[in-house]
Design a protein around this nucleic acid. Sequence first.
DNA 1: GCTGGCACTCACACGGACTGAGTGCCAGCA
DNA 2: TGCTGGCACTCAGTCCGTGTGAGTGCCAGC
Lengths: 340, 340
Amino acid sequence: MAHDDRCLQVLRAIVQDYVSTNDPVGSKALAARHDLGVSPATIRNDMAVLEEEGYITQPHTSAGRVPTDKGYRFFVDRLNAVKPLSVAERRAIEKFLDGAVDLHDVLGRTVRLLAQLTRQVAVVQYPTLSRSAVRHLELVPLAAYRLLMVLITDTGRVEQRVVETPAEADVETVAELRTLLNAAFTGAKLAEASGKVGELVENAPPHLRALVAAISATLLETLVEPTEDRLVIGGTANLAFGNALDFHGSVRPLLEALEEQVVVLRLMAAVGPSTVMVRIGEENEHEALTGASFVSVGYGSGDQALGGLGVVGPTRMDYAGNMAAVRAVARYVGQLLAES
Amino acid sequence: MAHDDRCLQVLRAIVQDYVSTNDPVGSKALAARHDLGVSPATIRNDMAVLEEEGYITQPHTSAGRVPTDKGYRFFVDRLNAVKPLSVAERRAIEKFLDGAVDLHDVLGRTVRLLAQLTRQVAVVQYPTLSRSAVRHLELVPLAAYRLLMVLITDTGRVEQRVVETPAEADVETVAELRTLLNAAFTGAKLAEASGKVGELVENAPPHLRALVAAISATLLETLVEPTEDRLVIGGTANLAFGNALDFHGSVRPLLEALEEQVVVLRLMAAVGPSTVMVRIGEENEHEALTGASFVSVGYGSGDQALGGLGVVGPTRMDYAGNMAAVRAVARYVGQLLAES
DNA sequence: GCTGGCACTCACACGGACTGAGTGCCAGCA
DNA sequence: TGCTGGCACTCAGTCCGTGTGAGTGCCAGC
């Protein structure tokens, strides 16, 4: 029906105008800025309908309308074509990410890039250990009963732990251990590691058995500890821009939640590659994120994401642009990690 | 002289009151809150002197006085005894830092701890590579002409770089290389590494010479690259508290400067262990840090600092408390790193 | 050299009037 | 049936004038 169709157009126009001006938008301004082909009075009728259905709301009588979370959601769901990035933007991405020397550097550049492209707060998750594969396992003797275990994954992530050994391990023993462990684990996905441990310990030469068990235990601990999922955050300065008022006055709870990391990580857990996830306002269960939207996507070469990245900003954000940026950056990061 | 002495007391009282209340402090309130033994009128005279000498200023006529940067400086320089931390605080430090699994974890906890203790933004620098010693150097073959070099230092820091090798390196060659390099570098301070390289390449067996040269070159690069000095930042939420107004309106430039890292790193470069450095307002050359004070100290066991840590906040901060916290935390971190 | 008193200043808070963007409703027109 | 122009109404934000009070500088007196 022509009517519903126009309602959608009106909603879209409201979202666009409100995002760009940050002022509640009225019927008259709408008619002036968009070629809707109808008069303000008609638009008013449509707006009344939209309000009744909960897509928009007015902050107070005699003010314009503002989209609700539901309104943004509807708008985002109807974003058919993700608008492609400009050539300049693509070039910026390449230039920014090239020349990174290691994983830390890659993620650091990524987060800065995302923050710059979107003018929002950017978050990037380290590649999840459990989905990475072992590239190398190194043992360095520290003292008679202490070893340093260094785990290097194919995504370039490095984890280290000190292992208190049950027996003294001299240099030769350590060399034996290293060979044994690498033979067992190199190339294996870390998620499969726990399955291999039992067999490995059993088949180990008796004099190494206790040591293998101790090291394996530490390895498994490394996987389950919450510290395994690290987050890089950047662009927090974008919160202080002046639209700080978007978060009903204070950005403090939001900053705190971001530093907590765990909140963001939980949101990111659900994300897969290639499909951009958008969570709008109240859709984020966490209280501090009410009033904020979170646009994220997984990165990684395969069909399972190695990790996630995204941006956090006010619900009043440029969804189309941010979704495009997040997706493009994720794709590049995926490529970059697959190469190295 | 009794007069100068009282002036100092008055200044101290003004700083204390202003820090705790954030209101310009007047003569009457001063007389009421502090036992100065004189009347408000007398205090007014002293305040006039202090103002003339540039230690305090009044935002506008008929408002109380506010300390200037010079006033804070004077106050800080006369802080004779650094007030010791409470037992609860000491316990909090221990509890917070115990149980850290690796360097990343230690520094992450440190920055959170500092931010919590001081209610300011905390910054912690990774141990400087050039002052660390090599614990182990690991080589992992990636492809025919590519090696992954992993550098592990005695401070627990791990750096990795991909080396494009001039010659194909099979597993045995890599093993030889590893032995050779570790024999040469293990235990050596990284600052001395550059001196050793020439000799090492010369004495290497001919078939390894090119490879040794390539890897050594990468190692040296790792040391000079600006990426060598990393920074962990935490507690940015404390900027959004409400005293955001301390930074003449906007915390944005400050947040940007913090994310830049380089600004803070430059300030931190000058810092030594055991002596807490305080830079107040304009004393920080960088424009964004005008209006902010920076309290920092080096950490590390020896007489040379491995790195620095500190807090950034409004000039209107609790200098005594922050200096005490920074120093105490640095001491614990130094111990912790020396142990492992 | 300290104190009480006094006149003066001025940021800030309070309150009323005004303005204008925006709305809802209604009668009229295609 | 659906769109349009007109009209009365609402109310946040702004402007302006007044009042208040904290704070000051100065001066005479102890």
